[in-house]
Design a binder for these strands. Structure first.
Lengths: 206, 206
DNA sequence: CAAATATAATAAACACTGTTTAGCGAAAAT
DNA sequence: ATTTTCGCTAAACAGTGTTTATTATATTTG
């Protein structure tokens, strides 16, 4: 009898319905300002129903977290075609910038927010998608080393963390409005200029 | 008549009493997990009383924000005595790292949290303390240039933002638990190593 | 097919949150 | 001594995440 299969399918559809509504609301108005009741209202179900499909609000967040990394990895595919290793690294940086600026709420969720990490730290597979994107950075750097770059560096993981830190720092200061005291509207240019400077720093130092 | 003076003094004492209780609770258990009722309970007053001295929870947070920058600037004084400009820059970086790691909740509040920026963006003097510490970084870099460093860079503000971004990114990834997937307990070493690498990058590139 | 069982959905409640309002008691001014 | 002012608070308001007891429906069993 296909009843259990149908039920399973219906359950998955319901999970998707909830997640889709949650995504829309989260990305539109932010995580904190989106309540379970808002999501319930959007899908025309009672708030309690959501708890039959997701353990709590954090698990809902965690699902979007995973989807975010998938989306980012997908966009990184555009970069993989670049032949020259150093150019590829620069392209990766540009793609990372682009992703964060085009999906600010998603980036926040993936790399800044506190909440999902509580749910995340328990799970083992939780880091898989995140680790994969860090691996992509590492292999790109390894390729750079093979063609003669990064002469002063042997520790690939350290170089990766350093580059990631800069990118993330620049974006964090932007997304969390810590560059506001510059008091002009050149914030986007500043980000571009800083990225260019960092690229030049890497080019002639490592 | 000294009554108005006494009242003013009492009012300031009360503000300080509330702020001190708020600081203890915020820094101990985090901002989100500290409620107005918690603070009220700690000082043995009704929750409503707090609203007679502070507009809302964000203003309370904003006061701690200011105090945080004052504390950081105080610690930067230790750095000001270093003669050699580049050594001074490195010492400043180390002091910044130290401050963030010794005061994680305070650093979070000052540079990562979303909440205080809403209150902050209205005020003009709000940025004063923050801008002053950025100014300190800028002048240190200017001194470095005067003795021959940073040959490839003319834009001091861009160099400052780039350095700050790296430092902040490294600390953000740490404080918001984004380095957890390394799955070893070498996180502190990784931070130190990355800082050292970045210093070397600056030394021989700019 | 009818009765028993399993299940999906919910209304209502619980324990919180930040914030506002109305009112009381004491201090200050008249 | 009376009026006014002012510090303080109990209670309420509107919201939050989450749990529980109950109902209505779908499925299985006799």
């Amino acid at each position: 009898m296909g009843i259990v299969e149908r039920k399973e399918r219906e359950r998955e559809e319901m999970r998707e319905l909830i997640l889709e509504a949650a995504r829309k609301l989260f990305l539109a108005q932010g995580f904190d300002k989106t309540s379970i009741r808002n999501i319930a209202e959007a899908i025309e179900y009672s708030p309690a129903t959501i708890y039959l499909y997701y353990k709590d609000k954090n698990e809902l967040l965690f699902s979007l977290h995973e989807a975010g990394f998938q989306k980012m990895m997908q966009e990184f595919a555009n970069v993989a075609v670049v032949k020259d290793p150093f150019e590829k690294l620069v392209a990766l940086g540009n793609q990372y910038l682009k992703f964060a600026i085009e999906n600010p709420e998603l980036y926040d969720l993936m790399f800044i927010m506190d909440a999902p990490m509580e749910t995340l730290s328990c799970r083992e597979e939780a880091w898989d998608e995140g680790a994969r994107s860090f691996e992509f950075l590492k292999t790109t750097i390894a390729e750079c080393i093979q063609v003669g770059h990064f002469k002063n560096t042997v520790d690939i993981e350290n170089a990766s963390l350093t580059i990631w830190s800069f990118m993330h720092g620049l974006l964090s200061l932007h997304l969390r409005k810590r560059m506001a005291f510059f008091e002009d509207d050149r914030e986007m240019e500043r980000i571009q200029d800083s990225f260019k400077l960092f690229v030049e720093m890497i080019r002639c130092s490592m």
